[in-house]
């Protein structure tokens, strides 16, 4: 080795340079957000159509609808997860009857609009004698719908658990059910949790559809108050901002969770 130049300081310098570049990029990107949001806000304000008093008076009532939105989304994602586990086990079952039923469920739900399903639960089920109040009807429709999409997520998650895990457990003499419950599902869960987080964020937005069946959530409140006072611009803006903040908040948690879950893979 004749070279007198030590490589370590150079590498450190390159790394520092890259770090600086990354930081600069992030700062620039953040300032674009600030400038665009600020510009949009000023532009809206400049039109003179925004009534601050009105927002002050009605804002709290409309924003209060966010609790119902969260309640709907959280309850529905829990039920949907249960449905999805059953659905995924059914989709992977070698029993033709169970497999057929599970795939019919997925096909039926994925092949019809969510709004049709919501109307069906609220308006059509009573003809079979099942008359549900609006919030339970909304939760059932959302769970049923998301359960089908998440079935596919869980199926992929279960299939992604290495075969060797199952084989090892079976060779130890574990019964099939126990293998599923103790070995496969816990590992599958770790794989699908980021995807569930994604679906949860999507559900917060889709929950707006249940405003059509008289659930007094965010959008219902915004549209009723907007129509009544001819200030739809303000009320829809409030609703949009609240949905946005909710999704930013939950996306942040989801990202953290995703990073935590990915740690085991290294």
């Amino acid at each position: 080795m004749t070279s007198a130049v030590p490589t370590a300081p150079i590498l450190a310098e390159i790394e520092a340079h890259q770090r600086r570049a990354r930081r600069r990029f992030r700062a620039q990107s953040a300032s674009v957000w600030v400038v665009l949001i600020g510009g949009l806000g000023i532009a809206l304000w400049a039109t003179g159509n925004i009534n601050a008093d009105f927002i002050g008076t009605w804002g709290p009532y409309i924003v209060g609808g966010a609790w119902i939105t969260i309640l709907l989304s959280v309850t529905s994602i829990i039920f949907a997860t249960g449905l999805a586990i059953l659905g995924a086990i059914g989709r992977l079952s070698e029993n033709a009857f169970i497999n057929g039923a599970a795939s019919l469920y997925v096909s039926l739900v994925r092949g019809t609009p969510l709004l049709v399903q919501i109307f069906f639960v609220y308006y059509a089920l009573p003809q079979f004698g099942v008359a549900l109040p609006s919030i339970p009807a909304g939760i059932i429709a959302l769970s049923f719908n998301y359960g089908a999409y998440m079935t596919e997520i869980f199926r992929a998650g279960i299939q992604a658990v290495p075969r060797g895990q199952r084989e090892a457990a079976e060779s130890l003499g574990m019964p099939e059910r126990l293998v599923m419950r103790r070995i496969v599902l816990p590992q599958a869960f770790r794989i699908v949790i980021p995807a569930i987080g994604n679906d949860f964020v999507a559900m917060i937005k889709d929950s707006a559809l249940v405003s059509t069946i008289a659930v007094q959530e965010l959008l219902w409140r915004a549209s009723k108050i907007g129509t009544r006072h001819f200030r739809t611009l303000e009320t829809l803006l409030i609703a949009a901002v609240v949905y946005w903040l909710l999704t930013i908040l939950f996306s942040y948690f989801q990202e953290k969770l995703e990073r935590r879950m990915a740690r085991g893979d290294r």
């Binding site: 009605w58 709290p60 409140r221 129509t227 009544r228």
Partner: peptide, 11 residues
Amino acid sequence: PNYAPQSFLQE
């Protein structure tokens, strides 16, 4: 509750 003055929402 979208039909003032017959029925409408308060704050």
